[in-house]
């Protein structure tokens, strides 16, 4: 079982069970073949509802620090209810990216709030593909759209997506280089660092 610090300890605004959330983390760790003694802080902001979704994955003092909007785990058909399939995918991508950050290959990666949209999404696609290979289902059509919003609707961006999906990016530098080599579109260059509107309001 993971060394998990869950924030909040119990949910009061949404109908998520803290015990079930802990079980889901363990299920995901087992599925992706992560070390069972992984140290994880999982913070879920239950005030934020669908579709106000956002997430951050960082490493603080050797612990994987995951922050999510409650909306990331919420059933889109039933307000405040946990969507387990969605939760597994979110946790899988988050933990895999956290494990990347713990590895030397990603040592130079900036914190999530300093990543560009394109860097973040290319990394997520890579993690999503690993989730799928580990048996955690994802919505690939959804992912591709989010990716295109960040990286542009272009052949170059699509080629990078395919490479990420097939496991072509295994280091932070390879992701950074791929984004740097993408043909920039007017839309992607006009954007700066990803806005962390939802998270910063807590600070």
């Amino acid at each position: 079982m993971a060394n998990l610090l869950l924030i909040p300890e119990e949910f009061t605004l949404v109908l998520f069970e803290a015990s079930r959330m802990r079980e889901l983390v363990d299920e995901v760790i087992l599925a992706i073949d992560a070390p069972s003694d992984l140290e994880i802080t999982l913070e879920i902001d239950e005030e934020l509802a669908q579709p106000m979704t956002a997430s951050y994955v960082d490493v603080d003092d050797g612990r994987i620090a995951l922050w999510y909007s409650g909306g990331n785990f919420e059933d889109t058909k039933k307000a405040r209810v946990l969507d387990e399939e969605r939760a597994r995918r979110e946790l899988g991508v988050g933990i895999l990216r956290g494990m990347d950050r713990l590895s030397p290959e990603f040592a130079g990666a900036p914190r999530d709030n300093e990543l560009s949209d394109a860097q973040r999404l290319l990394w997520e696609v890579s993690a999503d593909a690993r989730c799928v290979r580990a048996g955690i289902p994802t919505r690939e059509d959804r992912l591709r759209y989010v990716y295109r919003l960040a990286c542009g609707f272009s052949d170059t961006a699509d080629a990078a997506y395919e490479k990420a999906w097939s496991g072509g990016f295994t280091t932070w530098q390879s992701i950074a280089d791929a984004v740097a080599n993408m043909v920039p579109t007017a839309e992607t260059t006009s954007r700066g660092i990803r806005r962390d509107d939802l998270r910063k309001i807590r600070e």
């Binding site: 979704t53 909007s69 909306g71 989010v146 839309e187 806005r195 509107d197």
Partner: peptide, 12 residues
């Protein structure tokens, strides 16, 4: 588009 929740909000 530069907001984190933009894809989910747009889909919704």
């Amino acid at each position: 588009p530069d907001r984190a929740s933009a894809p989910d909000r747009a889909r919704s």
